[in-house]
Design a protein around this nucleic acid. Sequence first.
DNA 1: TATGAATGAGGGTTCATTCAT
DNA 2: GATGAATGAACCCTCATTCAT
Lengths: 212, 212, 212, 212
Amino acid sequence: MTNATRWQRKKDVRPGEILDAALTQFVEKGFRATKLEDIARAAGVTKGTPYLYFANKEEIFKAVVRETQVANLSKLQAMSQQYDGSSRELLRAFVEQWWQQVGATPSGGLCKLIMAETANFPELAQFYFNEVILPARQMVAQVLERGIAQGEFRAVPIDTTVETLLAPLIHQLIWTHSFATVQGGRSAAENDPCRVLLDGLDLMLNGLLPRD
Amino acid sequence: MTNATRWQRKKDVRPGEILDAALTQFVEKGFRATKLEDIARAAGVTKGTPYLYFANKEEIFKAVVRETQVANLSKLQAMSQQYDGSSRELLRAFVEQWWQQVGATPSGGLCKLIMAETANFPELAQFYFNEVILPARQMVAQVLERGIAQGEFRAVPIDTTVETLLAPLIHQLIWTHSFATVQGGRSAAENDPCRVLLDGLDLMLNGLLPRD
Amino acid sequence: MTNATRWQRKKDVRPGEILDAALTQFVEKGFRATKLEDIARAAGVTKGTPYLYFANKEEIFKAVVRETQVANLSKLQAMSQQYDGSSRELLRAFVEQWWQQVGATPSGGLCKLIMAETANFPELAQFYFNEVILPARQMVAQVLERGIAQGEFRAVPIDTTVETLLAPLIHQLIWTHSFATVQGGRSAAENDPCRVLLDGLDLMLNGLLPRD
Amino acid sequence: MTNATRWQRKKDVRPGEILDAALTQFVEKGFRATKLEDIARAAGVTKGTPYLYFANKEEIFKAVVRETQVANLSKLQAMSQQYDGSSRELLRAFVEQWWQQVGATPSGGLCKLIMAETANFPELAQFYFNEVILPARQMVAQVLERGIAQGEFRAVPIDTTVETLLAPLIHQLIWTHSFATVQGGRSAAENDPCRVLLDGLDLMLNGLLPRD
DNA sequence: TATGAATGAGGGTTCATTCAT
DNA sequence: GATGAATGAACCCTCATTCAT
């Protein structure tokens, strides 16, 4: 195969390459500002090629979401089920896992993007909410309930507590992909964002300890 | 007030009316999806008029941010200085005030929008960070330090704790302007988002109590 | 107003100019092959301007049809109502009128275009059929029935006769805008197509005479 | 026939299969709206294959016309030569034959398509005119002249009469492939279009009878 | 021969921006 | 100042055509 080859035939890997490129571009510029040609060029193809695999820009976006977001959750759920340590330790493990799999990866940028674009893609927002947000909440709720049942935590309202526990994660995600990029936005402490999350978790877990 | 006077006056308030309209439109649809004509119509003028006061759409966005954000903080700062109750109560008062002044207003939507658009408007993000985020952090840091000095809180790392305390506020902002609009996104608890914030604060304040 | 004026403001006449240009272009090239920019240039504007007055290319097409086709019919109907000569003479007058108003004008080319494009625009075809074809048939049917009632014509089946009477007109339309343009397509006789139509009509009217 | 033989044979008929498929597709959708891939799929081959036999889409169209049209006429001509009944009956036989061989077949749709596309394919229109239209006219002219010579018809101008006699056929063709598909376009009478043609012919033949 | 992945010019449509009135 | 008709660059998407396999 000579260098003059205009393109390579790679039907089986193309979709993946395009989605990878799309993920990067979307995270970098947002949905509207990303041109199909940007994605194509980043994937090493020309502007028509993505349309061989995806109906339109929006479908590319959805495919990226599906590819990146749902799998992560399953891993955490599996971990939760086979865990036999304390609820406190399980929650800490959640945070560490999540940070490695999502928070510190482009996947996290996508999550931020979705929240930024809900107004333009209500359908997508709904999908993400159902497939990712709700299951994540339920997972944490179960740990919380178990901890309360076993006397490890005191009895707190589940709903609001779950949201309070998850808030720092979402906040960190947003932050990493917004103000963290400006001058001073990444504080000394945030050079290890996972550390911040674990510190925060500790703080909240203290608040969950049974009062004497 | 004569007709002539009213028109005279109109001339001076025009830019403000345009910015008000722009705020609403931007928050509702995002920067890209907002058409200049939308803004103009919402401001009661025609397509070309905004260009008499602003160089282009981007400048309108910047002006909206500058106009809207700075004022809010001063009130909270004033409250902080003249407060003589417990640090705990002051923090609770902060949250309530903030929710009323910012969180539940278009101003909050703008904050979310800025986070969504940081990549496209780094300069603007920097401005917002310097003028709003940093002062807010410092204010909370002061209360925290005071509380620790007075033995009301135990000695915790200031930086990370401040961020942990502020995270739920920003999270709530994001949420209100993203998933709150999808089916199920607004849970029963969230019908009173301020309640969620106060509950969360209580949880964290418990964690700040000195251990015996 | 200097020569340097990039464009003229002519809100009230623009739509008409665009439709005129569109008629010419559509007749010349067909719907698909006509570019919006062709229409715009022919109308002396740039490609964005037509969209100030029409939603899209298809709407321009429909507007052209409405503007050109329906009015013609009304004139013929008016003529029919106030006519008091013989049915035979009325039919001859129809043909002459129609040729002047439709057959020999760009409007006739449009009629041909519609038939050519029915597959692509069923909705438009339906519109044209309802608004133009059916009324024209009814008009001729009435004359025929009157002629039979008054003993001027013998009793023939109305439906098929109407279609046979109209066929040469439609045929002439199609012909003028198709094969008439090729070498030899315009026969000596056809240099006066209206003559052909009237001769044909005479032939058919002879067939309608009561047999003795 | 072995498998090998069948494949061998396949090679020879491929172009024909492609033209058959193209005929159907062109008639159904028109030239522009027919995608090469549609043709290929209908022919049971893939996208690139037609290009092994034809230079481009336009050449396929031309080939379709050349292949399809010429054969039809010969049969009618043969019939004309060996006919020894009345000219009137011969004309009736012509019409019936034509409707069966052309009018009611895709071949008729192609004729309509050519008329629709003359502007885009003048060369093709010329070919069709020379090879099909002119011979058909001459054939009818001969019958007419014979009928006049034998006193069966009165002396009418040949050219215009031929065109008048052929007009309903072309009209029917146009109609079948345009308005016949809309609501109401196919009238009760038209459920048997050949009937309409024969009725019309009778009408005209009455007009051709010698006046006493 | 045949395939079908890839190309890339082309065209419809949008909308920020301009400027004669 | 204000208007709003007009501009024209930009972008999404299509599909005839190519060519490595």
